[in-house]
């Protein structure tokens, strides 16, 4: 159980570093070191703070609650054969709603500063997560239907690949969870982290007023979110039958491939027009319904669909 946790926490520190290094290599730039993300956080922890006069105690509390919800969410994710600390019926519902409450408190904190663009960022974040939530539930619902179990560990451990269509299903689910992680972390096509423009940022503009220790937590949380989605993808990729050590070896490989993919997406396409983000996320939920229908076909439940 501990091994899975440690693996995720380590990846959360390294992941942003790998993404920025690969993006730099693609751009023929020297690029920062892999551990730059870690150094930034260490420096931020040593810095002082400046709080805005219009904000109350809630503003200082929000990053702490946000980071704690993510940290608790990590305890729900199994890694291969390593069971998670919490694994019970419907734990993915608890996982999704924990992330939602983290987002809720961050939106409140952003609105507390009373500035125009932080309100805009909060509004966009609330709207996009509203559209993206059903996608996660449909995917998990269909795989739960497919495997007949109801908790992360059981679903992933019995997701044996039995017919060609299941390959298609797990491939499509990985594709969707990949884009879900891009929305959740406000990377391309929804938002671009390294263009510094107040009016087009989504997540980064919400944290414009945080400083010092709180900002460090938020940046740490960014890496953690990537690691969480990375381990979800790892569980979907690897049929669990084989032994522990193979998984231990496979986990970093899958994370690195995932990071490289993120970097490639961010290098070779522009980001969506803000209005098209909503349509784009809705197409994702349409795709997730395709996953659900394929599961129905696999289980010959279709019979005579009206």
């Amino acid at each position: 159980m501990g091994v899975g946790l440690v693996l995720i926490l380590i990846t959360s520190l390294i992941f942003p570093g790998i993404v920025s290094v690969v993006k730099a290599k693609v751009a023929a730039r020297k690029g920062p070191r892999v551990m730059q993300h870690f150094y930034d956080i260490i420096k931020l922890m040593k810095k002082g703070n400046v709080y805005s006069r219009t904000t109350g105690f809630l503003f200082q509390l929000a990053p702490i609650i946000y980071f704690s919800t993510l940290l608790t969410a990590v305890f729900f994710i199994p890694v291969g054969n390593y069971k998670a600390l919490f694994s019970f019926e419907g734990d993915f519902v608890m996982f999704a709603y924990l992330m939602a409450s983290g987002r809720f408190i961050m939106i409140i904190a952003a609105m507390d500063t009373g500035s125009g663009f932080e309100g805009m960022g909060a509004n966009r974040e609330a709207f996009y997560s509203l559209l993206a939530e059903p996608v996660f539930f449909i995917i998990m619902g269909s795989i739960a239907l497919h495997t007949g179990h109801n908790s992360f560990y059981d679903i992933f451990s019995s997701l044996y690949v039995e017919s060609a269509l299941t390959y298609f299903v797990s491939a499509l689910s990985i594709y969707l969870i990949f884009w879900l992680s891009m929305i959740e972390n406000s990377r391309l096509p929804v938002d671009d982290p390294n263009t510094h423009l107040e009016l087009t940022m989504v997540h980064e503009v919400m944290v414009l007023d945080h400083s010092g220790f709180e900002l460090g937590l938020i940046q740490l949380a960014g890496g953690l979110k990537f690691a969480i989605f990375g381990s979800l993808i790892f569980n979907l990729v690897l049929p669990i039958q084989n032994n522990y050590f193979v998984q231990l070896a496979f986990f970093p490989i899958v994370q690195i491939i995932y990071a490289v993919l993120v970097a490639f997406v961010e290098s070779f396409r522009a980001r969506n027009k803000m209005m098209r983000n909503a349509q784009w996320i809705i197409t994702l939920s349409a795709l997730s319904i395709v996953v659900f229908l394929t599961i129905l076909i696999i289980h010959e439940k279709v019979g005579m669909l009206p």
């Binding site: 219009t54 609105m111 009373g114 709207f127 059903p134």
Partner: peptide
């Protein structure tokens, strides 16, 4: 499935609405 999606969307919309109402009434200037 329609029920699941409906519950998720209602939850999301409720978060959207209550972040608005709480922030507009209590927060900011």
């Amino acid at each position: 499935l329609a029920g699941i999606v409906a519950l998720a969307v209602i939850g999301g919309l409720a978060v959207f609405c209550f972040t608005k109402i709480f922030s507009i009434i209590f927060l900011g200037t």
